[in-house]
Design a protein around this nucleic acid. Structure first.
Length: 875
DNA sequence: GCAAGGTC
């Protein structure tokens, strides 16, 4: 009997390629099976999966939402089916005659489950070959070879922990999602979802919004004075700003004065001062340690401060990873593995544009990279691979992100920075003490009347004025050693200069200011702050948190950026808090983590944990049964509130944003069909109702979200009125019907806010040319010789610009677009455009000429319908 | 068509 090949299975294609390279010493060849790369050398084959290639679901008889009571899902069977047919087929073919199978998926819980899934697929076709498991934390020669020299077994308990998570997530998510959707009669694309991760994430946002809405601002005052060293013969002294402070009842310093009259008295006192004397000088040196290596969350946060959304940052990092320039971007690890030699990696940057920084780091006697708190087994922290891109290979955004990763790695190898902090306290004297003594110290306190901060009872009296005068303080900091700031410009190293002064020194007191301020509500979570918070609470994973946020947008739960929850989101959270609390609580994940740990250690098993979870969900459904209508009504009201613009001018109902049969948006009356009042909306983008309303019509302003083409439309009634009032301005003959029918071209303002040059015989003749949305259009005396039309000039911004003859302008626009980059088409990103160019499609023009089926065959992950969709958009 | 988790 001939021995078949050994089969190695990895979690992803990239890992398969690199492992094959390492184990074969570079001799592996690539062949395609079912459109999947298989690496072969000697008696070995290596195939990469694409994460989970099978998925859990309910059997088909449960798939109709209307025929199945959501509660039935609680005890429904769960089946596992292939989701990536081609990869599953390739794996089966290879497994059939394999003599041995080695599972080399990622070294984490989900990797163990993916490995077990591969094992099951292998066993379907081959019940003899031994199946081993190898584990390594990073794909380096030493780790991989060590792992393959000493193979282990699949940890079925650990995999079962992952399976329990799958089952619980499916059952809770599907049952409650269907319940909410059915109760609100939202069954189309606009179903109402909840889940173990999206639930608590949404509640974070809703809770913050509740705090903001409940916030009651308080007034307070702060005082400032401009101090300066007295000019001496040797040179002029520096000026610096100092702030008034007093000593609170508990002995701490306080700057905010919570009472207006008291603040005024103190300001009078400060104005009466004729100078200040330095009372105390305090110098301290502080070290400022370099940052820890990047995990996914901290990477997203740093990219966020450069203006990238979480989604965009991850997509760019994935591109850089696939191209081989940075390591795997999905990781929780903040400790470099032992086999990452920082010196060696720094040397790879010699002679590049990072060369000087790399050299200066290499000149250190020893390099001890920083470490974060989290050390995991799956992947190393995100770092450059040492494979160097040519700047021209990367888009501007990719380069910026690449540089961030390189510089972060540099920073982790760099020395700490040191700062000198200088704190100066001076007393504003002269008449200040006498006048200041007139201020009521108790009134300065926030809690003085006992009701502001609840039951905080304050006793004692603060000291508003010191013996020698009004206290002023200034804090300066100077960078003594730049340390890692030299190589990592993304965190501020700004200095605040306070000049050297000595105790007892007299200072001039210049301008004095009393500033009235208000306490501010808490800020909304930004995307990266939200991801940090999710990580803190343990919800979601490094690979999914940014997707969860995208999902909240897709479901209509949040809008704009930073994400703001809609009324629908509030209603979903309210309903869940009342009837299905676990689904919006981070506690559910915490419990699940405990249960999974118990399964992994063998204390519990899959059935025990999933049965227990089903029982809890069962009781929740018992409660829900009676409240179905109540919940549904509230959800529907909230959905309507999210779409409500304001009062209808023709009846007592409200105007709503509606969607036409053709998928376009318009404004219609809630009283339809009794009231048929409508207003049009622009044809591009998805409408978002802003908080601001139109003073004249009491309607919410409308913003049209359309990616880079997003714009504020304003009040749709105002736009329609403006169009009704504007007279069409005739500029020449219609080229289509001017001679035969006498049609003329005119500049027209449409009721949906757009403008065009169109035929006066519309709709009999629909000849039209586009015009820009913004700016005033001037008809000049100059005429186009070819089309006999006047040149147009557009007044927007500071400088008017020449649009010229509208026909020539449109022709040029078309030509530019035809020859322009593929990326102008919605849905084509940089990666897809690159793939298209490889297939010989260089620009929009050649995309339009392409045969959809042929092109789809040539480009991975693109179907003929997608091509047709692009072609339609190109027109 | 539901979730969350992989991967792209």
């Amino acid at each position: 009997m001939s021995r078949g090949p050994e089969l190695i299975v990895t979690e992803k294609e990239n890992a398969a390629r690199r492992i094959a390279e390492i184990l074969s010493g570079g001799a592996a060849e690539t062949e395609r099976r079912n459109g999947v790369n298989v690496y072969r050398w000697g008696g070995k084959r290596c195939i990469g999966l694409s994460g989970h290639v099978v998925g859990v679901d309910f059997p088909p008889e449960y798939s109709d939402w209307r025929d199945v009571e959501p509660a039935e899902l609680v005890d429904a069977p769960i089946v596992t089916e292939p989701t990536q047919e081609n990869i599953v087929a390739a794996l089966r073919r290879l497994a059939r005659n394999a003599s041995r199978v080695i599972i080399a998926t990622d070294y984490d819980r989900e990797g163990e489950l993916i490995g077990k899934e591969a094992y099951e697929l292998v066993r379907e076709v081959n019940d003899e070959a031994p199946v081993d498991r190898v584990r390594f934390s990073s794909i380096t020669e030493r780790e991989v070879k060590d792992a393959f020299d000493d193979p282990d077994e699949i940890d079925f308990d650990l995999a079962a922990a992952g399976e329990a998570r799958q089952a619980i997530d499916l059952v809770w998510g599907a049952a409650l999602t269907r319940f909410l959707s059915l109760s609100a009669r939202q069954l189309g694309d606009d179903f109402i979802s909840v889940g173990r991760v999206q639930g608590p994430t949404l509640k974070l946002l809703v809770d913050r919004e509740r705090e903001i809405q409940a916030f009651d601002p308080e007034s307070y005052w702060e005082l400032f004075g401009e101090l300066s060293k007295k000019a001496t013969g040797a040179g002029s002294g520096g000026e610096f700003e100092a702030q008034y402070f007093y000593v609170d009842v508990d002995g701490t310093e306080a700057e905010r004065v919570w009472d207006g009259p008291t603040a005024e008295t103190l300001a009078d006192a400060l104005r009466a001062a004729d100078g200040a004397e330095v009372d105390d000088v305090n110098r301290r040196t502080r070290t400022d340690d370099p940052p820890a290596p990047f995990n996914t969350t901290q990477f997203i946060r740093a990219a966020g401060s450069l203006g990238y959304s979480a989604q965009r940052a991850m997509s760019l990092a994935e591109d850089l990873y696939t191209a081989g320039f940075v390591s795997y971007p999905r990781t929780d690890n903040t400790v470099y593995p032992d086999d990452l030699d920082p010196r060696e990696l720094l040397e790879a940057f010699r002679g590049t544009r990072f060369g000087d920084d790399a050299e200066s780091l290499l000149s250190q006697e020893s390099i001890e990279p920083t470490e974060g708190d989290e050390e995991t087994t799956d992947h190393p922290p995100i770092h450059p691979t040492g494979e160097l891109p040519d700047a021209s290979e990367l888009s501007d955004d990719e380069w910026e992100i690449y540089e961030l990763v390189v510089r972060r790695f540099f920073a982790t190898c760099a020395p700490a920075a040191t700062w000198e902090h200088l704190r100066v306290v001076a007393l504003a004297d002269g008449e200040a003490s006498r006048i200041g003594a007139e201020a009521d110290p108790r009134a300065a306190l926030r809690e003085h009347d006992g009701d502001v901060e609840g039951d905080v009872e304050t006793t004692g009296t603060p000291s508003l004025v010191a013996d020698g005068g009004l206290r002023l303080k200034a804090n300066g900091k100077r960078l003594l050693e730049a340390g890692y700031h030299e190589v990592y410009p993304y965190v501020s190293s700004k200095e605040t200069i306070v000049p050297d002064v000595e105790a007892g020194e007299r200072l001039d007191l210049g301008e004095r200011r009393l500033e009235a301020k208000e306490t501010q509500p808490p800020r909304r979570y930004g995307q990266s702050r939200l991801i940090e918070k999710m990580e803190e609470l343990g919800i979601g994973t490094k690979a999914t948190r940014h997707h969860t946020i995208e999902k909240l947008y897709d479901r209509g739960y949040v809008e704009s950026d930073p994400p703001r929850p809609t009324r629908l989101a509030e209603a979903v959270v309210e309903a869940a808090e009342k009837f299905a609390e676990p689904i919006v609580s981070e506690g559910m994940t915490a419990q699940l983590e405990r249960d999974m740990a118990a399964i992994a250690s063998g204390e519990k098993d899959y059935d025990e944990v999933t049965d227990e979870s089903r029982e809890l969900l069962e009781t929740i459904f018992e409660e829900l049964a009676d409240s179905r209508e109540e919940i549904g009504d509230h959800l529907q009201e909230s959905l309507k509130a999210d779409k409500t613009l304001g009062p209808c001018p023709e009846c007592d109902s409200q105007l709503l944003v509606r969607k036409s049969r053709y998928g376009s948006y318009f404004v219609g009356c809630d009283g339809y069909p009794n009231c048929e009042y409508t207003l049009p909306l622009p044809s591009t983008g998805k409408p978002l109702l802003l908080d601001e309303t139109c003073e004249e019509h009491d309607l919410h302003q409308v913003k049209m979200l359309a990616g880079r083409k997003t714009f504020v439309h304003g009040c749709p009634q105002c736009k329609a009125d403006a169009a009704d009032e504007a007279d069409d301005e005739v500029i020449g003959d219609c080229p289509e019907c001017g001679e035969t029918e006498g049609g003329e071209l005119a500049i027209k303002q449409l009721r949906n806010g757009s403008r065009l040059v169109g035929c006066t015989r519309y709709p009999d003749c629909d000849y039209s040319l586009p015009l820009p949305r913004r700016g005033e259009i001037e008809v000049t005396d100059e005429r186009c010789g070819e089309h006999d039309l006047p040149h147009l000039r557009v007044h927007s911004g500071d400088e008017p610009w020449e649009l010229g003859c509208p026909i020539c302008n449109y022709r040029e626009y078309r030509a530019r677009r035809e020859g322009s980059e593929l990326e102008v088409i919605e849905g084509i990103g940089e990666k897809t455009a690159e793939k298209l160019r490889e297939a010989g499609v260089e620009d929009v023009g050649s995309l339009k000429d392409a045969e959809p089926d042929e092109l789809a065959d040539e480009v991975d992950g693109v179907g003929p319908d997608t091509v047709r969709d692009w072609q339609a958009k190109a027109d």
